[in-house]
């Protein structure tokens, strides 16, 4: 459960203040699939950083599973990210020379999971994100874009997070592969009841989610249930 109460973020650079978020409030319940949509410069990235506990708001409260994140130290934030969050980035951010399994197990080394259990967890996570087992020992730079993003999704899920944040996950993919990745998110939301927040600037991508929050100039301009949810008939 995510609760944002009147969150603001103001950057001051050499005396010039830039208001990135001007008071944003919303609640996301467990199991929701929400898209945060807005053009570049709208503040959606800033919001994503705060939701991802990479940054703290200038004012306002951000509660993640009833814990107040707003005033935590860097180390406390790192612990929250480790336990509760999974990230999927536009540029995948995989370790290029490491194998798929090692990439997926990476978050586990920071969360004190015994070595012998890591591979099994990583395998399960990879299967859930739909990557074929033949690729498990490939190096991640030998994979296609779609495969890499699935590895990234598996990595995001490996620590069983309460929230998955996807930042433009289809930005580096062609339309068809993008569809497949979005479908993967929909499946994870539907079957595993994962809470997923999708950050995008494209209406088309946002329409794959169940709820769309539109943000512009640091303020929420629209928060709607997506009635025309896009789904592809994707048989696997």
């Amino acid at each position: 459960m995510i609760e944002c109460r009147n969150i603001t973020k103001i950057y001051s650079n050499g005396g010039v203040e830039t208001i990135a978020l001007g008071g944003v409030s919303f609640t996301i319940k467990d199991g929701e699939f929400v898209a945060i949509m807005g053009p570049s410069g709208s503040g959606k990235s800033t919001l994503m950083h705060i939701l991802g506990c990479l940054d703290t708001p200038t004012s306002g409260k951000f509660l993640l599973d009833n814990r107040d994140i707003s005033s935590m130290s860097d180390d406390q934030l790192a612990d929250i990210r480790k336990e509760k969050l999974g990230f999927v980035f536009q540029a995948f951010n995989l370790l290029p020379r490491a194998t798929v399994l090692r990439n997926v197990s990476l978050p586990l080394i920071y969360s004190d999971i015994p070595k012998d259990k890591r591979e099994a967890i990583a395998r399960t996570s990879l299967k859930n994100s739909g990557l074929d087992e033949t690729h498990f020992y490939h190096r991640s730079n030998q994979l296609s874009g779609g495969q890499m993003q699935r590895v990234a999704i598996a990595r995001a899920l490996v620590n069983n997070p309460s929230l998955v944040l996807a930042d433009e996950p289809t930005g580096n993919l062609d339309t068809k592969t993008g569809e497949i990745v979005l479908h993967t998110f929909q499946e994870l939301n539907r079957k595993q009841k994962r809470t997923i927040i999708l950050i995008t600037h494209e209406r088309y991508v946002a329409e794959h989610a169940n709820r769309i929050i539109t943000i512009r100039d640091g303020l929420i301009v629209e928060d709607e249930i997506n009635i025309s949810k896009r789904e592809i008939k994707y048989s696997n």
């Binding site: 990479l54 790192a78 990210r81 480790k82 336990e83 969050l85 990230f87 920071y110």
Partner: peptide
């Protein structure tokens, strides 16, 4: 990335 996934 390491920081994002919980490295201090």
């Amino acid at each position: 990335l390491r920081k994002a996934i919980g490295a201090k």
